[in-house]
Amino acid sequence: MKMTLGPIPYFWKREAVHEFYEAAATWPVDVVYLGEIICSKRREMRTQDWQEVARLLRDAGKEVVFSTLSLIEAESEILALNRWVEQGGLLIEANDWSAVHCAHAHGLPFVAGASLNLYNHEALDFLQQRGMCRFVLGVDQGAGQLQALRNQFPGGAQRFPDTEVLVWGRLPLAYSARCFTARAQERSKDDCDHCCIQYPEGILLDTREELPFLCLNGIQVLSAQCCDLGPELHQLQALGVTHLRITPQPSGTGAVIERFRQGLNAATPLERQGDCNGFWYGNPGMSWVSSATPI
């Protein structure tokens, strides 16, 4: 199985992003996803910066994928998407149907992002015939659903597309037109003053019982809990998962990757470090299920 580093969901300063990827070039990951996926107003990184980072990572032997904006609303965002597809020379992770259309119209392969709602084998087959080279399993989908997809897929395991699963990080749960970070500061989205740069890990929300619940990141809502499928690595392998995705965090990402890399080479399963894995077992996503549980 290959290890991948997902796109940075948060808004970090330009220098921090460059530093992060300079370090990533030395980490044992095979694939790195780049690009701004949450808000087109986040412009610390210019196109040239991303190109520089892409070169650095490719020189370090990584496959580089450009991840597209999760919610596209403005024409300027469409134009930016077209430019990336036409000139970027990078594989695209399509995070909405505009990006799928764009890649397909240019006859280019694409990775289908986790929010495209590919819940059945016919949908996978349809997109595979239109250029999808890999898909990221939906955040709410788990082992049972992946097994069913594989069982039903026309042409069987040999033709089944490469499969990527989020194994570490906060779960991306929802997207809105509203910027929740601006709202938390009592600002409107048009007058946000890029305040999300003050929150390199988003804004944590507790319930009124002071239990961690959600995390606000611009127009995105994440879980406060960190998903950890480390103890499930053997299940992932048995289900033919080809790519394991780690979500970047401001510190400690290298150690997380190291842990999973060791887990891949070890005979015994990894000890639990994260908070939740419920979706993998078909349970509420925030729950934790023991890896000894039959799937």
Partner: peptide
């Protein structure tokens, strides 16, 4: 179906 752009609708 979550389509928000002319391109997505064209698809």
């Amino acid at each position: 179906g979550s389509a928000t752009t002319p391109q997505a609708l064209r698809f």
